[in-house]
């Protein structure tokens, strides 16, 4: 059989196969190189002092506790606001909307939002939230900007999992006399909870890695604040702190320490997403 294939065809096959292996090797190398290099340069500088203090000019030390807390605050605030909006929008699209034109308009808007670069979100967030709504440069303004950025993610993942809820579940509940809202609340939403959780995990990943949109809206400060006071004042998240330490102050050791923390979180988030994907596929497979 093999003898029937001409030399040039064999060469074509070998070249293409070779290019495939080469590309795969490049991608795998890049991933492991990034992981190992960042951890190698950074892990040694993650000390209790770095993690548990704020920067002190008196003692000339750098601590990233304020940045860790700011990141946490921004993640929590953004999710609290974006979840009801995103899940609600997805419910409207799959459960309520009758007008196909309106559905297309909303889906088009969501797609447009997901294509807009974060620097533009940063600018418009600064104009609308910081200046027009006079929130000043604050974590709240930053979170509101991230809400708009993450809205398409939550909408899409929720919508996808709403579509997998069998129509018969809804019909069964309607037949028992339940109203539409009751059906959504007690039957539809609990069935698609995995999709919503996946959306949250993806959003947390995006919030953790966001910097351009936060630079002009949440600003740069290292004060230790509680949640409420923190939301009202400026503060740098981990990524923004990394940027400033690396490119404005030349503190590469601190920058790599922050980068290692971010890398570990990125890997954890991806493992979680993968696990959620398995869970959902198993349910559809049933």
């Amino acid at each position: 059989m093999i003898q029937g294939i001409s030399g040039s065809r064999k060469a074509y096959g070998a070249t293409m196969r070779g290019l495939c292996y080469l590309s795969l090797a490049i991608v795998a190398f890049l991933t492991f190189f990034m992981l190992i290099y960042v951890l190698y340069r950074g892990v040694g500088y993650i000390t209790p002092e770095l993690l548990l203090t704020k920067p002190s000019t008196l003692r000339n030390t750098i601590g990233i506790l304020p940045n860790i807390l700011n990141t946490l605050y921004v993640v929590v605030a953004t999710l609290i606001i974006v979840l009801p909006i995103g899940v609600g929008a997805a419910i409207y699209l799959t459960e309520y909307a009758r007008n196909q034109k309106l559905v297309e308009l909303i889906e088009f808007a969501a797609e447009t939002l997901s294509g807009i670069p974060s620097i533009i979100y940063g600018l418009v967030g600064m104009l609308v939230f910081c200046q027009l709504m006079s929130l000043q440069t604050s974590l709240l303004a930053g979170s509101l900007t991230l809400v708009i950025m993450n809205l398409p993610t939550i909408m899409r993942t929720t919508q996808e999992s709403l579509k997998t809820v069998p129509q018969s579940y809804r019909e069964g509940a309607f037949a028992l006399g339940a109203g539409k809202w009751r059906v959504i609340r007690t039957v539809v939403l609990p069935t698609c909870i995995n999709g919503i959780i996946t959306g949250c995990i993806l959003s947390i990943g995006r919030i953790l890695s966001e910097s351009a949109a936060l630079l002009f809206t949440a600003g740069f400060a290292h004060n230790l604040n509680g949640f409420i006071k923190g939301m009202g004042s400026a503060g740098a998240t981990l990524t923004v702190a990394l940027y400033v330490y690396a490119s404005e102050r030349g503190e590469f050791n601190v920058a790599f320490a922050i980068a290692s923390i971010l890398m570990v979180l990125t890997v954890i988030i991806n493992l979680l997403t993968m696990y959620m994907g398995h869970l959902m596929r198993r349910r559809i497979g049933e």
Binding site: A28, F32, M34, S209, S211, S247, A255, A259, T266, N270
Partner: peptide, 22 residues
């Protein structure tokens, strides 16, 4: 590899910048 690609996509852009700088 899908996990690798997910990690590559999730790495914050400032980390790419940092590695690029150094």
């Amino acid at each position: 590899m899908e996990l690798c690609i997910g990690v590559l996509a999730g790495i914050p852009s400032v980390v790419y910048g940092l590695v690029g700088m150094t």
